[in-house]
Nucleic acid binder design. Structure first.
Length: 424
RNA sequence: AGAGGAGUGGCAGAGUGGUCGAAUGCACUGGUCUUGAAAACCAGCGUACCGCGAGGUACCGGGGGUUCGAAUCCCUCCUCCUCUGCCA
């Protein structure tokens, strides 16, 4: 979330940024926040005064008791009644105001940076670059949902039986290829200087609040009510929460973490006609990279992360394009996002396989991830993350693009990891 | 899972109802001394919010309560330790 003081200091810029996101009535929302914050300050001030009076009275009563002036003490006690009631009332008010302010702030998305194009939806995203040639498939080429049946490598029916829709079972070479990709992605990240993390895949409420899945996106996560834990939708959540309420020092920065995890998404209401096969799942695997940096370095780092993901796609020999998301398509918490899409030859569709974002201080503010500046004052760091990569759609494109009449050809780089060079 | 114990400042550790934001030691910062360093000595040393400032308020694992007043008493949750049980 944004800092109120930032909103105050950069009111014009904030409103401009919200307009770029097609946020409705931004100046109204901002004015209301500032008003609420003013009310918060004045209420806080009143309460502090009342509490100060109470503290003085309490000290006096203590003194009187010590001196044995019972009667006077009793009288002084009576005099505090009104003050006490008033302080309770003000404290309740303050709590409500703070809550109201927080809710309002949660409703304000991050401010897009200058390089984010204007636009209302995915058609306005800027195609930054395109790499590789779309595959020239043989006659009778199939979409991946048929290929996986033909070669018996992924079984949706079994998943239906065991769990339900969107939980496929990977079998034989399908399972091995999956494992190979995870290892390949992790190894590439290690070469890039990342530290591998194996995080818990269940998180508590505090972590969900920290990275912003809660309270607003509660319905998108699987919730274990007995223990009040949530299945992670991405490794970003536990990995970023490592640094919740942490003040990092120079030696620890930049933080560069990579983690593999299964990801769980309820995808409530997201199932449409053209969501088939591996295109959208309730459980899938992903390798995620996370960085935490000084503010002045974060865009250089964003660039570095983009290059890392590009190199993965190029090594896998997949045709892809990179999008600079427009204001209307930008994620709520992001200041700038690049999406990577691979071309899936038989579906003839671009599939999003990675999203690399700079959140600037938006996440850090909620999480309280900070460093001490040269004056010893705590300042918020910038957080960034990106998929490197999400597996199912990579697998979909790989199966479709690499199919031949003899079988599916495994890209060179994966062969040492999976131990075979074709499926079929 | 049951029984018992414990959670205090960067660390160690005192404090069981009253000027306690919290003794003391270590660490850290500045100074004196020294050619330099160490030692010794002196001083400083938490965070957040409000205020131009003086200053005020809050914070002793989290939340709630009792009280004029809570680190201290009560309730509840979390975490850690010991013992018992169970288990990959």
């Amino acid at each position: 979330m944004l800092l109120v003081n930032n909103i105050r200091d950069n009111k014009v810029k904030v409103i401009e940024g919200l307009k770029k996101r097609n946020f409705e009535n931004p100046s109204e929302a901002i004015d209301r926040i500032i008003e609420t914050d003013d009310l918060r300050k004045s209420t806080q001030g009143q309460l502090d005064q009342i509490l100060a009076d109470g503290n003085v009275a309490a000290r006096r009563i203590g003194q009187l008791m010590k001196e044995g002036k019972r009667k006077e003490a009793e009288e002084a006690k009576k005099a505090t009644q009104e003050n006490k009631a008033k302080s309770k009332e003000l404290a309740d008010q303050l709590k409500e105001i703070e809550n109201d302010l927080r809710i309002q702030l949660y409703d304000i998305p991050n401010i897009p940076n200058d390089k984010v194009p204007a636009g209302v939806g995915e058609n306005d995203n800027e195609v930054v670059m395109e790499y590789g040639d779309k595959p020239d498939l043989h006659k009778g080429a199939m979409p991946h949902w048929d290929l996986i049946v033909k070669y018996d490598i992924i079984d949706f029916e079994l998943g239906n039986k065991i769990t339900g829709a969107g939980f496929p079972v990977y079998k034989g070479k399908g399972a091995r290829l999956q494992r190979a990709m995870i290892n390949f992605f992790l190894e590439e990240a290690l070469k890039g200087g990342y530290t591998e993390i194996q995080p818990p895949i269940l998180i508590n409420e505090a972590s969900g609040l920290g990275t912003g899945q809660l309270p607003d996106k509660e319905g998108q996560m699987y919730h274990m009510t007995t223990d009040n834990l949530y299945a992670i939708p991405t490794a970003e959540v536990p990995i970023t929460n490592i640094y919740r309420d942490v003040i990092l020092d120079d030696g620890q920065l930049p933080v560069k973490n990579v983690g593999y995890s299964p990801c769980f998404r309820r995808e409530a209401g997201a199932w449409g006609a053209n969501v088939r096969g591996l295109n959208r799942l309730h459980q899938f695997d992903k390798v995620e990279i996370v960085q935490i940096t000084y503010p002045e370095e974060s865009y250089k780092v964003l660039d570095e992360m983009v290059q890392h993901v590009q190199s993965l796609l190029e090594k896998l020999e997949l045709p892809y394009r990179m999008l600079n998301l427009c204001g209307g398509d930008l994620g709520f918490t992001s200041a700038q996002t690049f999406d990577m899409e691979v071309f899936s030859g038989a579906q003839k569709k671009w599939l999003e396989v990675s999203s690399i974002s700079n959140f600037e201080t938006y996440q850090a503010n909620r999480l309280k991830v900070r460093y001490k500046d040269e004056n010893g004052k705590s300042q918020l760091l910038h957080t960034l993350n990106g998929s490197a990569l999400a597996l199912p759609r990579i697998l979909a494109a790989l199966l479709e693009n690499n199919q031949t009449e003899e079988g599916i050809v495994i890209p060179e780089v994966l062969r040492p990891y999976c131990g075979f060079d074709s499926i079929g």
